[in-house]
C-alpha cells in the first residue's frame, strides 16, 4: 500500500495545523538559535543539524551502502543475468558458489539483487524527481494565481487523488508492455499530486508574507514574486518532499510487478524479484522472497529516515529565522 493520497508517515506531519512550531516548551527561542547560526550558510546548518539526527544518518548510510552494492558490486561479483541456465534453477543459498542461491531460471540471486536494484533506484529517483518538479510547478502557479484558477487546478488534483494509483496501474497493465522510461513516466504521473497540494498550501501562506506584498507594492510582477521569492522559499519543503517521493516511488515500483506491469525478462527490479517469488511461498524457497523484500524495506525506510531528519533540520532553520 502506498501513501498515494495521504502522505504517509512522514509527510503527514505537515498537514497538522501547526500553531507553535517550537517543540521545546517555554524555551526562549529568539536569541539561542540566532547566535548559534551566525555566519553559517543555510546549507551548512541544515547539514549539521541533519548529521546530529541518528536515524537520519543511519538512513543515509543504508542508501549509500545500497547504491555502492548495486553499482560497484557487479564489478566485484560477476554473474550472468541475461541467459537462462536450466541446470542451476532453484538452488538454495551457498550451493555451487551462489551466495544467495538461484531463482527459477537459474539467475544468481545476489547478482540479480544488484542488477535489479539499479532499475529500482534509477526509476525511483527519476520518478520522484519528476513528481516533485511537476507538483511544485502546478502548486506554485495555483497558489499564487488564487481565485477560480486555483480552484480549478486543485479540483483536478483532488480528482487525481480520488483514483488510487494501484487501481490505475492495474488498468494500465492491461494496455501496455512496460519499459524503464515508461515506468518512470507512469510513476511520476501518478505521484505529483501530493507535492502539488503541499506546495500550493505553502505558496498560499507565502503569498501573504510582507516581503511578497512589498514586491507588489513596488510594482513588481507576478513572475518575480513566484520565481524570485516563492519558489526559493519552498525549496526546503521540496527537498524534504522529494526524499519521501523517492521512497514512495520505489515502493510503488515494488507493486508494479505484482500488478502485472513488471519489466519483461531478463530485465527485472526488486519488486519483480519479490513478486516472482510469491509462487514459491509453499515450496520453502525463502531465498526467492526474503532478500528482495528486505532490500525494498531497507531502502524505502532509509529514504523515510532521511526525509524525516531533513524536515527537522529545515524546521530548526525556520525557527532561527524569526
Amino acid at each position: 500500500m502506498t501513501r498515494g493520497t495521504t502522505g504517509g508517515p512522514g509527510t503527514g506531519d505537515r498537514s497538522v495545523p501547526a500553531a507553535g512550531s517550537s517543540p521545546e516548551l517555554g524555551a526562549p527561542r529568539p536569541a539561542v538559535a540566532h547566535r548559534a547560526g551566525r555566519g553559517a550558510g543555510m546549507a551548512r546548518r541544515v547539514a549539521r543539524d541533519f548529521s546530529r539526527n541518528r536515524l537520519g544518518m543511519v538512513g543515509l548510510g543504508i542508501i549509500v551502502g545500497l547504491v555502492l552494492f548495486c553499482f560497484v558490486g557487479p564489478l566485484v561479483y560477476h554473474t550472468d543475468q541475461v541467459h537462462v541456465n536450466l541446470a542451476q534453477v532453484d538452488l538454495p543459498p551457498g550451493h555451487s558458489g551462489h551466495l544467495l542461491g538461484t531463482d527459477d531460471v537459474g539467475h544468481d540471486i545476489l547478482g540479480r539483487l544488484m542488477y535489479g536494484g539499479r532499475n529500482s533506484l534509477e526509476i525511483g529517483l527519476a520518478a520522484g524527481v519528476i513528481a516533485v518538479w511537476l507538483g511544485t510547478l502546478w502548486g506554485a502557479v495555483a497558489g499564487y494565481a488564487g481565485g477560480w484558477v486555483e480552484g480549478l487546478m486543485m479540483r483536478i488534483v483532488d480528482a487525481g487523488i480520488a483514483i488510487p494509483a494501484l487501481f490505475l496501474l492495474l488498468v494500465v497493465a492491461t494496455m501496455v508492455t512496460p519499459t524503464v522510461p515508461m515506468l518512470i513516466v507512469i510513476i511520476g504521473l501518478v505521484s505529483w499530486l501530493v507535492p502539488a497540494r503541499l506546495v500550493r498550501a505553502e505558496t498560499v501562506s507565502l503569498r501573504t508574507r510582507d516581503y511578497v506584498q512589498v514586491v507588489k507594492a513596488m510594482g513588481g510582477g507576478a513572475t518575480r514574486a513566484v520565481f524570485r521569492h516563492i519558489v526559493p522559499n519552498v525549496v526546503g519543503t521540496m527537498i524534504v518532499n522529494a526524499t519521501f517521493q523517492v521512497a514512495d516511488a520505489i515502493l510503488l515500483l515494488a507493486y508494479v510487478s505484482f500488478l502485472g506491469l513488471g519489466l519483461p525478462q531478463p530485465q527485472t527490479d526488486w519488486g519483480g524479484m519479490l513478486s516472482n517469488g510469491i509462487q514459491y511461498t509453499y515450496d520453502g524457497y525463502w531465498w526467492m522472497i526474503i532478500p528482495a523484500g528486505v532490500v525494498i524495506v531497507l531502502v524505502v525506510s532509509a529514504f523515510n529516515f532521511v526525509g524525516d531528519a531533513l524536515r527537522d533540520a529545515f524546521e530548526v532553520r525556520l525557527q532561527g529565522r524569526s
Binding site: 510582507d210 516581503y211 513596488m218 524570485r228 521569492h229 526559493p232 522559499n233 529565522r321 524569526s322
Partner: peptide
C-alpha cells in the same frame, strides 16, 4: 513606498 511592522517577515530570507 512602504515599511511593515514585522521585521521577521518583511525581508525575503533567501536574499
Amino acid at each position: 513606498s512602504v515599511v511593515f511592522q514585522d521585521p521577521g517577515s518583511s525581508l525575503d530570507p533567501r536574499m
